[in-house]
């Protein structure tokens, strides 16, 4: 057994890691949208419950949220009579989705509120319906304000996926530990190094994508932004 053999082994756990990440990204995004809508609308009781959820997601350590999902979910699926559905991976996805959704809602809400009141006034006075206003004017501008925070929240999510090994999901981190134990802890440093590179790469790619959209935003450009400028800026900031 040599060092290079462990790399493909680690990579074999990557699909599951990515599946957990993307599920949490997608479900979390939807949860954040709903939570943000409920919070800016200020509906009695419902909005307060949503506030409560958001402060849970933001203030309870993510490891703890994963344990809550891991031990809480079986009770819930038992109630629904769907025990077969439960696995550590599912618990990881649920736990991280709730964490990410709450966190992201606190990115979206300020972004929505950052859109100038006058933009609402102009759209309303021209006869836009609420949906048209959100879709055409307020939404795109809020996205612009939300992008930097969104990039951060994705990076935190990727970091926190490393915690799912505590509830027994077989991501790259868990796999690394399995490899190390099997190999009598010979290559600990090397294994962690490879792991570090994998995480760094995932974060860098995510950041690069988000940053590309940031630079492309029309609200950003003080003068006409060319593709070359976007590329240069992106390279300079890596």
């Amino acid at each position: 057994m040599d060092v290079s053999a462990m790399i493909p082994e680690l990579f074999s756990a990557l699909p599951l890691t990515l599946a957990i990440t993307f599920t949490a990204m997608f479900v979390g995004f939807c949860l954040a949208l709903v939570a943000t809508t409920l919070r800016v609308r200020r509906i009695p009781v419902v909005s307060h419950l949503t506030d409560l959820y958001v402060s849970y997601a933001r203030s309870v350590p993510v490891v703890l949220q994963l344990f809550v999902a891991f031990y809480g979910l079986p009770l819930l699926v038992a109630l629904l009579g769907a025990e077969d559905f439960f696995s550590p991976t599912i618990a990881a996805m649920v736990g991280l989705s709730f964490y990410h959704g709450g966190y992201l809602s606190e990115v979206m809400r300020p972004a929505y509120l950052a859109v100038d009141r006058g933009q609402h006034d102009a759209a309303d006075s021209l006869g836009y319906t609420f949906r048209q206003k959100i879709a055409r004017i307020v939404g795109p501008q809020a996205v612009h304000f939300a992008l930097p925070g969104y990039g951060n929240s994705i990076i935190y999510l990727i970091h926190n996926v490393a915690l799912v090994m505590y509830i027994g999901a077989a991501d790259v981190m868990a796999t690394a530990h399995l490899i190390m134990e099997r190999d009598y802890n010979q290559y600990q440093f090397e294994t962690y190094l490879v792991l570090a590179v994998i995480y760094a790469l995932m974060c860098l790619i995510a950041w690069f994508i988000v940053h590309f959209f940031e630079l492309r935003s029309p609200m950003q450009a003080p003068e006409a932004t060319t593709t070359a400028q976007i590329k240069n800026a992106a390279i300079a900031s890596v």
Binding site: D116, G118, A122, A123, S125, Q141, H144, M219
Partner: peptide
């Protein structure tokens, strides 16, 4: 149709 003191031109367009 209203013209505003702060213009309120849609910033994303």
């Amino acid at each position: 149709a209203m013209v505003f003191q702060q213009f309120n031109v849609f910033k994303n367009m």
